[in-house]
């Protein structure tokens, strides 16, 4: 059983929802990524989505665009990102790690080489924003053979038929994008999300994570009431950017990010 699946099962037994933070690897320094991952876990995160920086992040708003630019300024490559995961795994063998990013860096590494390296580094899932299931026919079995989950997005515009197709192809969890827009968009409509998530859960046993527009304890807990996982990205990335602009140490940056996670965790667990 995949680490993601068993993790969700355990959470379920404990009556808890997954808190899933996103950070971009190499932002703002390659050396800060692994300490940040550990702090996220210590502050109460369940699964980590680690962003692979890309030069043309078409589905991202300004916050993650700038994170990619900061990471690429010192040349963070997919190989570097995998090395971060391997280092993280030296002391943490329980927290699932999902790589999130765009297809091209993976395409250039080559799919078999990537699958092998990702598995040996301890990656549990891969979410490629610009790889819909229709184009994933060759990739998915390859990931599967290395016990890597392929996580797909669902959007407010996704039809019922497509929802079915995506849930059939995905594993680990499905990622529901709560708003039409790029990452960092504002205003998530909690009632609308509740309806959509329920409709998705009708179609699949996979856990449903909800991302986009979650910025604090209140939005996190409102989503936790209706979904299996709460995915948070731009607020963390903004905190990392602020730390960099203030020249904060890695420890201080970790503390800043941990504070955000702790608030969300507390709000989600308060029932």
């Amino acid at each position: 059983m995949s680490r993601i699946k068993s993790y969700f099962e355990n959470l379920n037994k404990a009556g808890k929802k997954a808190l899933i933070p996103y950070i971009t690897a190499g932002d703002s320094y390659l050396e800060s990524t692994v300490p940040l991952m550990h702090s996220l876990v210590d502050a109460g995160s369940d699964i980590i989505e680690l962003g692979v920086p890309f030069s043309d992040p078409m589905a991202d708003g300004p916050a993650i665009q700038l994170a990619c630019e900061r990471a690429l300024e010192h040349g963070t490559s997919l190989t570097d990102v995998l090395a971060c995961v391997a280092k993280f795994r030296e002391t943490n063998t329980t927290t699932p790690v999902v790589l999130m990013g765009y297809l091209n860096p993976v395409e250039i590494m080559g799919y078999p080489a990537f699958a092998e390296k990702a598995a040996s580094s301890g990656v549990d899932g891969v979410l490629l924003v610009d790889l819909p299931p229709e184009e994933a026919a060759d990739v998915k079995p390859l990931f599967e053979s290395h016990s890597i989950d392929t996580i797909f997005l669902l959007a407010p515009t996704t039809s019922e038929n497509r929802t079915k197709l995506i849930c059939e192809h995905g594993s680990g969890y499905v990622y529901y994008v709560s708003v039409k827009g790029v990452t960092g968009s504002s205003a998530l409509d909690a009632d609308e999300v509740a309806k959509k998530v329920a409709a998705i859960q009708d179609q699949t046993d996979l856990p449903v994570g909800v991302g986009f527009g979650i910025k604090d304890g209140a939005t996190a807990s409102s989503v936790a009431k209706v979904a299996d996982g709460v995915i948070v990205g731009s607020v963390l990335v903004n905190a990392i950017a602020e730390s960099a602009s203030q020249n904060l140490s890695v420890e201080d940056t970790c503390q800043k990010v941990s504070a955000i996670i702790r608030e969300m965790r507390a709000a989600m667990d308060q029932e």
Binding site: M58, L103, V129, E135, L153, A155, R162
Partner: peptide
Amino acid sequence: GRFVSETLMS
């Protein structure tokens, strides 16, 4: 092909 995020597929 069609390599875009899910929001645009429909």
